[in-house]
Design a protein around this nucleic acid. Sequence first.
DNA 1: CCTAGATAACTGGTAATACCAGTTGACAGA
DNA 2: TCTGTCAACTGGTATTACCAGTTATCTAGG
Lengths: 267, 267
Amino acid sequence: MIAFQVFFWYTETMPDKNHTTGFKPIAPRKIYQSILEQFVNMVCDGSLKTGEKIPSERELAESFQVSRPSVREALRVLEIIGLIDIQPGGGAYLKELSISPFISVIAPLLFSRDSFDLELLEFRELIEIRAMELIGERFTEADLDAIGSSLKEMGKALEGNDPEAGAVADIAFHRSLLLASKSYILQKVLEVVVSLFEHAIRGGRSLVLQEHEDARQLYEEHKGIYEALERRDFNLARSLVQAHLTMVRGLYARTVTAKEIPAESAL
Amino acid sequence: MIAFQVFFWYTETMPDKNHTTGFKPIAPRKIYQSILEQFVNMVCDGSLKTGEKIPSERELAESFQVSRPSVREALRVLEIIGLIDIQPGGGAYLKELSISPFISVIAPLLFSRDSFDLELLEFRELIEIRAMELIGERFTEADLDAIGSSLKEMGKALEGNDPEAGAVADIAFHRSLLLASKSYILQKVLEVVVSLFEHAIRGGRSLVLQEHEDARQLYEEHKGIYEALERRDFNLARSLVQAHLTMVRGLYARTVTAKEIPAESAL
DNA sequence: CCTAGATAACTGGTAATACCAGTTGACAGA
DNA sequence: TCTGTCAACTGGTATTACCAGTTATCTAGG
């Protein structure tokens, strides 16, 4: 069963060279790490619940018998990993784990790579299609309802010619699909992908919006997916999702090349 | 092209309720965020290179015209996102972005969910198989060499009955496969998966090691994958990887149920 | 009595300072 | 040349203080 032990020795032995001897480098334990550990454990065992207000920095410092800066460092980390929401002057509140703040920090690093945008699109396809493969096994009426209401929102947005509402409904639709897969990891991964897309667009990349003559086609595609699920035809639904995402990627590629050419001719 | 705008409005409008008005909540910009941003930008544009030593906290505080605690908060975040390596008494050094420290913090939260282990295995399958799909298009001789040398290490470990070396070679093998896919995202995602496995095992879960009577079978499977790649038979290689991972998952399931039963009877 | 506005007691954000512990490198003695 | 010491770093932690924003209370005015 080496295949598992693999994962144990990876980070242990790869970085340092003396893994043949059995000496491991000593890393001094820092105070903020201990605080962090206690916090995470308390969340795990339910001592702290989502939405709950955590004590003030001064109280925590007193409780932990450490100084306020140490507490602050731990809180800073908790903020970055998206486990708490800090309101200056207010207090800190526990929330559902969200990786977005972390992604915000590293996003520029990722996008500094060539062709990262396209890879991201491909990756999104991968997880969404996988979600569709899982969806059949444990599909419920509630899942269908959630997807249906997203579709209805999309329809309303189309009628009212409201791209923003349509966008929100679109993401809600795909989110519902992921939720129906009942896979926690896939949901979290989608969260990361969504944050990355957001930063990509905010940073001026992939600005393929505004031209919503395709809005009706998109709506029809989503409607098709919904109807397939309604009939419990999961194979068809999967194919439709695949076709939909491929189409979206095609639109992206078209937009990018259209944007690239004038950029080059300007040189 | 609503499908893209979606991602822009997601985190903007979902959290607050007044997205119909257009008012966005004001979040006061904190000093450490500004420092963070400057740092990340400097890494992006190459002002700071991997391995380079960054100035001391006191120097940075002076340069940025802020206090040392503010600098420390930024450094703390950089440490968590795995962009710098801090040696107490030494200094801080830039390194390749690695998500492991971040994963270390949130791992307990993730594993506190039921059936996360199995989901993780399934997810690993997903990305590895996807990597095998990509591998055909851009496979080079260097890729084959890297995979081959990992296999050779695995063989040596098998002869010498050295599970640890075999484990290292195993992960190196799969890593080479991911590298050959030329997909940055898949590589990074594998990194995360590997970190998670490490924490799972360290935390006493999935301790399915030691019994290496299966080592030869694992070696043969890896060898088969290599030989298929040698003949550029990518379809066969993909099937073999799929079979290999399914087998590994089966072993896991067997071990878990074997462990679960005595645990229950002990109650 | 009720409401509007001021006030006081919070909160987190930042700063300045000091001291400790570990690392490093140079220097002096063997 | 080698070795041990020591001084000058480094980051880790603690203390204290003050600022700005929020919140809740209380008071003065209606």
